[in-house]
Design a binder for these strands. Sequence first.
DNA 1: CCCTTTTTCGTACGGTGTACTGAAAAGCGT
DNA 2: ACGCTTTTCAGTACACCGTACGAAAAAGGG
Lengths: 210, 210
Amino acid sequence: MPRGRPPVHNREQVLSAAVRLADADGLDAVTMRRVASEIGAGAMSLYTYVPDREHLIDEMVDRVAGELPLPALTGDWRADATALVVAQREMMLRHPWLPGAVTRRPVAGVNLLGFLEHGLGALEPSGLSGGTRMALLAMFTGFVASYVAAEHAGDVTGEEQAARIGAAVASGGFPRLAAALAEGGGTAPDFARIAGWVVSGLVREAAANS
Amino acid sequence: MPRGRPPVHNREQVLSAAVRLADADGLDAVTMRRVASEIGAGAMSLYTYVPDREHLIDEMVDRVAGELPLPALTGDWRADATALVVAQREMMLRHPWLPGAVTRRPVAGVNLLGFLEHGLGALEPSGLSGGTRMALLAMFTGFVASYVAAEHAGDVTGEEQAARIGAAVASGGFPRLAAALAEGGGTAPDFARIAGWVVSGLVREAAANS
DNA sequence: CCCTTTTTCGTACGGTGTACTGAAAAGCGT
DNA sequence: ACGCTTTTCAGTACACCGTACGAAAAAGGG
């Protein structure tokens, strides 16, 4: 009973092609023409399924947010919240463009609301208020995004930045930075440990001072 | 004794024009042509002072990082670190494009290295290792960026997202989210309080588990 | 059969970063 | 005084971008 000319594509194809492009070549590679040609459509046909490029990216974010596992809660807020943070990191490692995309502007898709709902539940046993738990969840996400962005950047840059840092250190003007780097990068704590600090430290502190 | 034709502009003018544009109209408004016309130059003349647009943005980031006050350390790591975080927020409120720019890729300009040096010194009395202190500083920055991004976004969006959130809440599928929102936004803690949690909580936790 | 509705997509416009090119303007060696 | 070298300035051009517009295509309902 649909009246008009039947669509040959659908939103699903558009979004997964866009995500595939972003995963491979970064967010800048997600142009209307390239996404369209990826699914064998004309560039303007995309506008049937998506209002404009901005909303396309919004929906990409919400789509990959749907990959987050939301396992049944155990009642142990520390374990549940840490698992959530770890899952967020894996998602962002899988989609290197995500840290840059979430900072653009807030998205309120179904999957992201589902994430919020799950996180609020995970932190419920801590006894904190809803507003405080929301703020903590936002902090968790921001922390993971900045951590993963640094992880990816380490792989990419290296050359140019390393030279500048080396020169600055050699200049003697940054003694503490020089000392920290001389310790060797190996002493930097790994993600699981840091994630534990974030969750435990923030929740405990919030509980003590709310 | 410079040999060639004397330059009529300089990097300083380019950078401050670019920052002015970004402050007023966002990072997307920083185009080579607009920056150039802002200082009365031809578009291509900018390439005398800056290798390309990407590096221009890098230098913008480092330039505003120079606005950060780095007061003499008091020896109280909690107070010093909290002051640094508060100053970071003020910088990002002054330059709304910053949260989005720092997540793009890491920059190692002089002012940012100075910030690192200062932060390492502020956390020195905590007794943590250099690598751990570096990781904590990165987390602080990520936290502030995500917090301020949310602050700015709240002013901008409102309409479209609010409708979707309202519909989701009304659907009954997100009971905890609905409850948290029903509490009223006023119960969300303010920045100073949260900043204290972040600094104290993370440092304490790191010290206990390193 | 036509009419309405919907999707498809070619064309076109104004904008972008920047490669290329040559002209302009200074100091230096003679 | 006069090239020569060196550096900056900026016009032109190219490929690419998002997307407004409009016409063609393809279906169902009368």
